[in-house]
C-alpha cells in the first residue's frame, strides 16, 4: 500500500531526479568502500587471471595459459579433492548436529537455551588463531592430551603424530573445523524453531502425532529457508577453511591437507604468482556460485 504510493509519486520526472540524486548522496560513503575495496578487486581478480603477474614488473598477457597450467597441476587437483572431502563431510555433519542440538536446547528453560547457545558459539568468538594454537598442543605427539587419553584408555599404544601423519591430518582438521562451524547454525535453528507456528504443532499433538512426526511433518518444512541458508553459509565457510591449515599443517604432510584456499595463499603470497593465484580464485568462486545455485534450486523445489 505505502510502497505503491511512492511509485505513483515518483512518476513525476523531476521528483525522480531529485530522489535519485539524494539517494546516491546517501549511498556515496558506502559506495566508495564497496566499489574501491570489493567490486574493483573482484573485477581485477578475473582480469589478472589472464596475466602472468608478479611483484616488481609489468604484467604480461598470457590468455588462458594460467588456466591451462592449472588443469595440469597435480597439487591443484589434490587441493580440490581435499576441499571437496572437507565440504562433503563437514556440511552434512554441521547441519545435522546443529539441528539436533537446537531442537533439544530450544525445549529447555530460556536461561539454559541461551547458555548452551553461548557455549557452542564460543569457539567462533575465541578466534581461529587461539583455537588452532591450543588444538596444536592437544594434538602434539609428546605433550598432547589425545595421545595420553588414547594410551591410557588402551585405544592405541604408540604416540601418534596426529598432524604429521597423512592418515590423520585431514581428519583432525575437519574435526576442529566442525567445532568452529556449528555455532551460527545452532543460533539460527533455535530462532527458527521459536518462530514455528505453535498452533499447528499443538493441533497435530492433539490428533495423536508423535514428537518425531510433529517435528518432521510440521516443523521441518517450515524451517526449510533456514536450512537452505545454513547449507549455503556452511558450504562457503568450509571452502574457505584456511587459518587452521596455515597454522597447523601448511598443507602437509605430503599435500594431504592441501586445500584450494591454502594453495591460493601459497602461490600468491609465498611464490608471488599473482596471476596463477587469481585464476584459482576465479575457479573457486565459480564452484561456490554453482553449488549455491544448486542448493537454492533444490530447496525451492521442495
Amino acid at each position: 500500500m505505502s510502497n505503491k504510493r511512492v511509485v505513483l509519486n515518483t512518476k513525476n520526472h523531476k521528483l525522480m531526479i531529485h530522489e535519485t540524486a539524494t539517494s546516491y548522496l546517501f549511498m556515496l560513503p558506502f559506495m566508495i568502500f564497496f566499489v574501491g575495496f570489493v567490486l574493483y578487486p573482484m573485477f581485477m581478480c578475473v582480469y589478472t587471471s589472464f596475466f602472468d603477474a608478479t611483484m616488481g614488473r609489468e604484467d604480461i598477457f598470457v590468455g588462458f595459459a594460467n588456466y591451462v597450467q592449472l588443469s595440469k597441476d597435480p597439487v591443484f587437483w589434490k587441493g580440490l579433492w581435499n576441499t571437496l572431502i572437507i565440504v562433503l563431510v563437514s556440511v552434512p555433519v554441521t547441519c545435522a548436529f546443529s539441528l539436533w542440538v537446537a531442537s533439544a536446547i530450544s525445549k529447555m528453560p530460556v536461561a539454559a537455551t541461551s547458555a548452551f547457545r553461548c557455549i557452542f558459539y564460543l569457539p567462533v568468538v575465541t578466534g581461529s588463531v587461539a583455537v588452532t594454537v591450543v588444538w596444536k598442543w592437544m594434538f602434539n605427539n609428546y605433550y598432547g592430551i589425545f595421545n595420553y587419553l588414547g594410551n591410557n584408555l588402551g585405544l592405541f599404544d604408540e604416540r601418534i603424530n596426529w598432524l604429521g601423519d597423512e592418515r590423520f591430518a585431514l581428519g583432525c582438521i575437519i574435526m576442529i573445523l566442525l567445532t568452529t562451524s556449528v555455532g551460527q547454525p545452532i543460533v539460527l535453528y533455535v530462532s527458527a524453531l521459536d518462530n514455528v507456528d505453535k498452533s499447528l504443532v499443538e493441533a497435530a499433538e492433539v490428533d495423536g502425532a508423535t514428537q518425531m512426526q510433529a517435528f518432521w511433518k510440521i516443523k521441518w518444512p517450515q524451517m526449510m529457508p533456514t536450512t537452505l541458508y545454513i547449507l549455503v553459509i556452511t558450504t562457503i565457510n568450509s571452502f574457505q577453511c584456511f587459518a587452521l591449515i596455515q597454522l597447523l599443517t601448511s598443507g602437509g604432510p605430503n599435500n594431504s591437507t592441501m586445500t584450494i584456499m591454502y594453495y591460493i595463499y601459497y602461490n600468491a603470497f609465498k611464490l608471488y604468482k599473482y596471476g596463477y593465484g587469481n585464476a584459482m580464485g576465479v575457479i573457486l568462486a565459480i564452484i561456490i556460485a554453482i553449488l549455491s545455485a544448486v542448493q537454492f534450486k533444490l530447496g525451492q523445489e521442495k
Partner: peptide
C-alpha cells in the same frame, strides 16, 4: 558480492 568468497579478492586487494 556477499555470496562470493571474500578471500579470493585478497590478491588484487594487496596490490591495490
Amino acid at each position: 558480492a556477499m555470496a562470493l568468497p571474500k578471500q579470493v579478492i585478497l590478491i588484487p586487494l594487496l596490490r591495490e
